[in-house]
Simulated scan of single mutants.
Amino acid sequence: MEDNFSLEVKHIPKELKFILEIIKKEDVKELQSYLKEWLKDIDWNLFLELTIHHRVYPLLLGKLKMIDQSLIPANVMKSITNLYKLNTLQMLHFSCEMEQVCKMFDKHQIRLLVLKGPVLGEDLYGDISRRTSGDLDFLISIKDMDKVNELLLKNGYKKDDYIKTVLNDWRWRHHHVTYYHTQKKIKLEIHWRLNPGPGLEPTFNELWARRRISSITSFPVYYLGREDLFLFLVSHGARHGWSRLRWLIDIDKLVKQRIDWIKLARLLTKYQFNYVGGQALVLASQILSMSITKEMTTIIKGNHPKRLAQGAIFYLERMVNLHNEPVPDEIAKYHKRYLFLLMSNKQKVLFIMSFLYPYPEDAETLPLPKLLHFLYFPLRPFLWAWRKTMKHALLQGER
């Protein structure tokens, strides 16, 4: 189907375009012939950096092994091979722990949905070793949070208490908490929402009702239905600016499955993710040459998805890692504007209104007994103004 989604991509590094072509080419002879045209001035160090940053080495290795090995520097092949082996071992390790966690939670009658990890490798790529993962992500009902916390602590996990909260704002401002097992060297992210708030999204009961069962373990492991998985993956990828190709490749793989596009369109509309879904499809069509079908056009409407897709090219032009603090000022400022543009009008209203709700910083500025925390609502404008004044005075004093 013809489209008019052409994006400006001339500033994407040649090495990243090279990686994309390797991933996209299916015919070995065509791939080898194509490679020779690119190899004249490839920066192999940058190629390797980008391969690692975008977490695509499991996909590249199989392709590179099929071509004339004299075309690829030996150290590059060795590095990618080692990374693939380490990832395979990690995915096997994660699969084992994922099954154990599911057993443990089931024993204590806690419903659990796996969000990413090995189940996505199997579901989207047909092999757990072909997708990378740095941790295990689980979704639970928020009413089970205390029980889950007690259970994980009892079984050797330590909670990362990085969330500051006042008046229970953690319930909607945040969406997950992290646990780490020092002996197993495994990090778990326990989600009670798919995305940070404010914003509407499916309830846990709705997601549970549409769940699927994974075949990679002997004990039942449940994960999201296809349409729910699409919603989760596009909202997650968009929130991170699609700064890693792996997230976009997930979308390319997912849309090749049997998705109910009418059902998906309704789901995206209900939870205000229309533009984000359209952005993902436009990006996948332009970056990965994914075919846009007639069914997909129900999600790609108007020019806004294309504008959002063009906005995400900023992250592919640079090696952006939003998880490494501090984020450079130029990127932080751009990302703040970009996130606001992702929102629908209703989401923008909710976001702006959320500033009226007290922040933990208010409690730090003026500590009050817990029984008086409700006073932070009328006091918030004054506390915010006080912090701004003090910050400005501090900056003036440093000059």
Score class of each variant (00 low, 15 high):
residue 327 V to A: 00
residue 282 V to I: 15
residue 307 R to I: 13
residue 54 H to I: 05
residue 3 D to G: 08
residue 277 G to A: 06
residue 324 N to W: 11
residue 180 Y to I: 08
residue 200 L to T: 12
residue 132 T to D: 02
residue 172 W to I: 07
residue 295 E to F: 03
residue 277 G to N: 07
residue 228 D to Q: 04
residue 54 H to A: 03
residue 118 P to E: 14
residue 368 L to R: 04
residue 260 D to K: 12
residue 201 E to N: 05
residue 80 I to S: 00
residue 270 K to G: 08
residue 173 R to V: 05
residue 160 D to F: 06
residue 103 K to I: 13
residue 181 H to R: 06
residue 88 T to F: 08
residue 388 K to H: 07
residue 252 D to E: 09
residue 275 Y to T: 05
residue 140 I to G: 01
residue 15 E to K: 01
residue 195 N to W: 04
residue 68 D to L: 04
residue 171 R to M: 13
residue 272 Q to G: 04
residue 377 F to Y: 15
residue 91 M to T: 00
residue 171 R to W: 08
residue 25 K to T: 15
residue 298 T to E: 11
residue 193 R to H: 10
residue 298 T to Q: 09
residue 197 G to M: 10
residue 57 Y to L: 03
residue 204 F to G: 03
residue 374 F to W: 15
residue 361 E to F: 12
residue 129 S to V: 07
residue 160 D to S: 05
residue 191 H to N: 08
residue 209 A to N: 11
residue 312 A to W: 03
residue 205 N to Y: 09
residue 297 T to N: 05
residue 151 L to A: 00
residue 163 I to G: 01
residue 201 E to A: 06
residue 203 T to F: 12
residue 351 F to W: 12
residue 142 I to Q: 06
residue 130 R to H: 15
residue 30 E to P: 03
residue 30 E to S: 06
residue 190 I to Y: 01
residue 34 Y to I: 07
residue 272 Q to D: 15
residue 253 K to R: 15
residue 74 A to T: 13
residue 371 L to S: 14
residue 228 D to V: 06
residue 186 I to T: 00
residue 321 N to K: 05
residue 200 L to E: 15
residue 354 S to D: 13
residue 345 N to Y: 14
residue 185 K to I: 02
residue 39 L to R: 01
residue 374 F to N: 11
residue 202 P to G: 08
residue 145 M to K: 00
residue 391 K to I: 09
residue 285 S to K: 04
residue 93 H to G: 10
residue 292 I to E: 02
residue 390 M to Y: 08
residue 54 H to Q: 00
residue 224 L to G: 01
residue 35 L to F: 00
residue 3 D to I: 08
residue 186 I to Q: 00
residue 30 E to Q: 03
residue 193 R to Q: 04
residue 287 I to Y: 11
residue 31 L to F: 02
residue 73 P to R: 00
residue 297 T to P: 01
residue 309 A to G: 11
residue 80 I to D: 01
residue 84 Y to F: 15
residue 141 S to I: 02
residue 371 L to H: 08
residue 257 Q to S: 14
residue 177 V to M: 13
residue 162 Y to H: 13
residue 14 K to R: 12
residue 137 D to G: 03
residue 331 I to K: 00
residue 325 E to H: 14
residue 57 Y to E: 02
residue 159 K to F: 01
residue 129 S to L: 02
residue 99 E to H: 09
residue 255 V to Q: 12
residue 209 A to Y: 04
residue 314 F to L: 13
residue 276 V to F: 07
residue 40 K to D: 00
residue 256 K to A: 07
residue 321 N to W: 04
residue 170 W to Y: 15
residue 389 T to S: 13
residue 355 F to I: 05
residue 278 G to I: 10
residue 295 E to L: 10
residue 273 F to Q: 04
residue 127 D to V: 03
residue 367 P to N: 06
residue 283 L to T: 07
residue 211 R to N: 07
residue 40 K to T: 01
residue 211 R to F: 13
residue 49 E to P: 00
residue 267 L to V: 08
residue 224 L to F: 06
residue 294 K to A: 02
residue 174 H to I: 02
residue 365 T to M: 14
residue 58 P to C: 12
